[in-house]
Design a binder for these strands. Sequence first.
DNA 1: GTACGATACGGACCAGCGGTCCGCTTCGAT
DNA 2: ATCGAAGCGGACCGCTGGTCCGTATCGTAC
Lengths: 231, 231
Amino acid sequence: MPEPAPAPASAPASAPDPATPEPAGAPGTPGERKPRKDAVRNRVAALAAADTLFAASRSPEDVTMSDIAAEAGVGKGTLFRAFGDRTGLIRALYGTRLAPLMEAVEHGPPPLGPATPPLERVPALLDALLCFKFDNRHLALALEGTGADSPYRTEHYDRWHAMLRDLLLRTPAAAGSDFTAHALLAATRADLVEHLAGEKHTSRDELRSQLADFTGRLLGTGSHPGTAPRE
Amino acid sequence: MPEPAPAPASAPASAPDPATPEPAGAPGTPGERKPRKDAVRNRVAALAAADTLFAASRSPEDVTMSDIAAEAGVGKGTLFRAFGDRTGLIRALYGTRLAPLMEAVEHGPPPLGPATPPLERVPALLDALLCFKFDNRHLALALEGTGADSPYRTEHYDRWHAMLRDLLLRTPAAAGSDFTAHALLAATRADLVEHLAGEKHTSRDELRSQLADFTGRLLGTGSHPGTAPRE
DNA sequence: GTACGATACGGACCAGCGGTCCGCTTCGAT
DNA sequence: ATCGAAGCGGACCGCTGGTCCGTATCGTAC
């Protein structure tokens, strides 16, 4: 079993990478003006501050925009200019953190990359996603708590869903792939992870093994009597 | 297949039943004082008003406490006196609506009642729950959107989870029942239902059949080749 | 029917949130 | 060195959930 994430747990990281300044377009698009240096610096500072505060807070809801602005050493207006609104900031932050995983999934080597056969890739993807959600609970929680049906309004969700659905279609149990994909993703919802990890003190590896067992049973894999991980 | 709910869809109901006045205790508890008549009346009015407004609103978030108070014809203070806070009101409302189903599940006849064998009861419970969430999306959405990991802080969730877990334990695929129960419940999350029903225009029966298929596959039931519902 | 304590009412009120605005500063191309 | 434009930041706004307390209503004892 691979180790998709060594468990950074909560590392705010001094500088969350230069972060593509959102409206950048492909290099060569002439209509795009490159953002000013201080704008980029502030943007990065804001993301780092937000990450820190979310990680430190008990609930994402009690991190206010003013808090973030203060922590980042910028004005509140700057935050809203850079990200539009609170949701925009959280999305940007989440996206930044998720980027490496997305890269590994879309262009990397097996078992996450596209070259992996479906029956192997589906569990790998879910495991990786679970690890990410576990290690970045504070962010995922913040993101999923932004609006009404917030999780499903994310661009990322559609990507994951489409990928899973397509993979499932190339699988013995292809019927109902669309819903199945949704259901599998629902099993990695941030608040569920938080509930199990935080409230009921389930360890990271227990969680992974349980999810693996679950997907295995769905796919027809994994139910090897004898190898079955104990409850 | 049973019809656990004929699809009231959104019926505010002129009077959502006398609603047990919360602090009632068993009749005979002497320390409990019975609430005043007007208090009960207002409580009912508030629940009805809230139901109406949530049903009418596009998102639960834009129904304010003042709105509810106005609709119910009472003062805002009364609302908070009766329910503590916004979450309390929503929980009370949700509980009221859910009560009949809970009754049918805990003391009713098969296929929902306790006399049903596990392999048959699990799908029945999930189907009933899905129907409830579908028909009361506005409420479920409001409830699940109240706090950080709100769905898991409900007393009802624990009941459902415990029931499902115990049933699964008496099933061939007993391993990991705890997580499996969580995962199955996650597949009926209100915002997922709303996403599929509202955004992607999935019909009630499609949803039911998809969920049934999903649980069937998990339980080893239902995968009868030939009977498999098409995608 | 009346009197009276307890209970509930209700809307003015408050603190704190996300979000806006605009005079002033800073950047960077010329 | 100059100057237009881009960015800054914190005072400010509307609105929300939640509190408070003088007043009206209930239910009981007589």
